[in-house]
Design a protein around this nucleic acid. Structure first.
Lengths: 142, 142
DNA sequence: ATAAAATAGTTGCTTGTGCAAACAAACTAT
DNA sequence: ATAGTTTGTTTGCACAAGCAACTATTTTAT
């Protein structure tokens, strides 16, 4: 009986979805040895070499502390470099980092194929789009 | 440019949504002194006093270890009791726990009002429903 | 030129969740 | 009845993310 009300709660359904899809993404990206977030960060760097941590955080909607730590991790793996430039630090991928590019993109497509094959490409695209719009509405960055 | 592709990724949008809505829920339920999950667990107990941990986990879609810990927390706060019954444990709310019922339900409605006021009631209900259906499709409990 | 404010990043801590292995109780089949 | 299997719960560990307070740099205003 309560179950019905739970599934009418956005918090409840959204966090369940997050757990499911995060697990799927982790499994998919495990081939790269990276967490999904680290892989996405790397993709952001590929796209815009030398961008600042701040920009990375804004792109991925992650807090500065999370960005710092994800970056530390990638630096430790020698996949990116930090270039301190006054109060900002610029991030570049290393050669080793660039070598991962293909694999990461494969995982990224594979993840999409995976959930699309279950829920259907149209539904997947539609829901993703809707969630994205709702995110922008709810995320009132003060 | 990459931003556009990120918003087409269900993992990316879903985890962002989770972060936003979890924060909103935490703020809303902070009046109760409980995490949203703990509050939901308590609501499940109100609805079915004496149910097993297993059942709680199934209802909330949480792993046994998470249920154990959330319950430990509520026991420590003297809001519920565990009654060990062979290999299963049955959960009952205490009087102190029952006293929280009204407040928890208020927060629960208030949370819903909050996000509905931002994205609109229809859109909120629609997306919640869609996510719920997708959860059931993706959550292939082996 | 210097004090105050704003900005970028870091660090210690907390929280929620899961995994895997352990443990304990209860069936099942011989 | 007893060995093996299944089931429910617990425990140790790991991880991702955020908060709040801090440091360091840059900008602004006087």
């Amino acid at each position: 009986m309560l179950e019905k009300y739970l599934t009418e709660c956005l918090y409840f359904t959204a966090s369940r979805l997050d757990r499911i899809i995060t697990k799927m993404a982790e499994d998919e990206f495990s081939k790269t040895g990276l967490s999904p977030t680290a892989a996405y960060l790397l993709m952001v760097v590929y796209e815009d070499e030398g961008l600042s941590q701040k920009k990375i955080g804004e792109t991925l909607y992650l807090k500065p502390s999370t960005v710092t730590r994800t970056i530390d991790n990638l630096v430790r793996k020698e996949l990116i470099n930090k270039e301190i430039n006054g109060r900002t630090t610029l991030i570049y991928s290393t050669n080793k980092g660039k070598e991962l590019s293909t694999l990461i993109h494969e995982c990224w497509f594979s993840l999409r194929d995976h959930y699309s094959s279950i829920i259907g490409k149209e539904d997947a695209d539609e829901i993703t789009n809707k969630i994205s719009k709702i995110n922008d509405q709810l995320d009132i960055v003060d």
